[in-house]
């Protein structure tokens, strides 16, 4: 009875705290020996995920572990460890979850090469369409079935269409800027 609102409120508190964590920017003040070290620190802290937060990198988390891990990265940079060593350190303890840039393994090949694969498939499809379209005569004769209204200006007969094309081609060759068809376009 009384317990329920209290529980709800604390649950809510936890949830809002989790979100509100993000609204509080944290500030570490570390002393670096060189600007390059500071840059490395920022890059690394950006690439590691905070293990306890709701999806934030180490730079942008206020969680306790995040602060500890940032300090650890700082210490290791000062100690002279390389980026790879630091990354391996994190991997050994927290697993792949902690890397925002997934490692390339057998299981992530589809992830990393998927987009390129999509692109290649897409190019293949597009070329197929272009080839098919160029092979077709303009004004598809098979355009029937559900077609009822005119599609643009294809309400001309084939002869008229050919004449129009010739005229347009002439105009194109002589004076491209007066091609009304394209100036009236609204490609958006």
């Amino acid at each position: 009875m009384r317990l329920f609102p209290v529980l709800m409120k604390s649950l809510l508190l936890v949830c809002t705290m989790a979100f509100a964590m993000m609204a509080v920017a944290q500030v570490d003040v570390f002393d670096f020996e060189t600007a390059e070290q500071e840059e490395r620190f920022r890059q690394l802290a950006n690439e590691f995920r905070c293990p306890m937060c709701q999806n934030a990198n180490l730079t942008h988390s206020t969680g306790g572990v995040a602060a500890d891990l940032r300090r650890e990265i700082y210490n290791q940079i000062i100690d002279g460890r390389t980026d790879e060593e630091i990354e391996q350190f994190m991997l050994d303890r927290y697993g792949d979850f902690i890397l925002y840039r997934p490692r390339l393994t057998v299981q992530t090949i589809l992830l990393w090469f998927g987009p390129a694969l999509f692109f290649i498939i897409g190019i293949w499809v597009v070329f197929g369409i272009i080839k098919r379209s160029a092979a077709n005569s303009r004004g598809n004769e098979e355009d029937q079935g559900a077609e009822t209204a005119a599609a643009g200006s294809e309400d001309l007969t084939a002869d008229e269409q050919a004449r129009l094309d010739r005229l347009l081609a002439d105009k194109l060759a002589n004076n491209p800027s007066t091609d009304d068809d394209s100036s009236d376009d609204s490609r958006r």
Binding site: I130, R132, S133, A134, G139, N140, E142, Q144, A146
Partner: peptide, 17 residues
């Protein structure tokens, strides 16, 4: 839904594709 065809290699249709 039958579409028109008949556009060439460097036409605007291709760039939209």
């Amino acid at each position: 839904l039958k579409s028109e065809f008949g556009f060439g290699g460097w036409s605007r249709e291709v760039f939209l594709l």
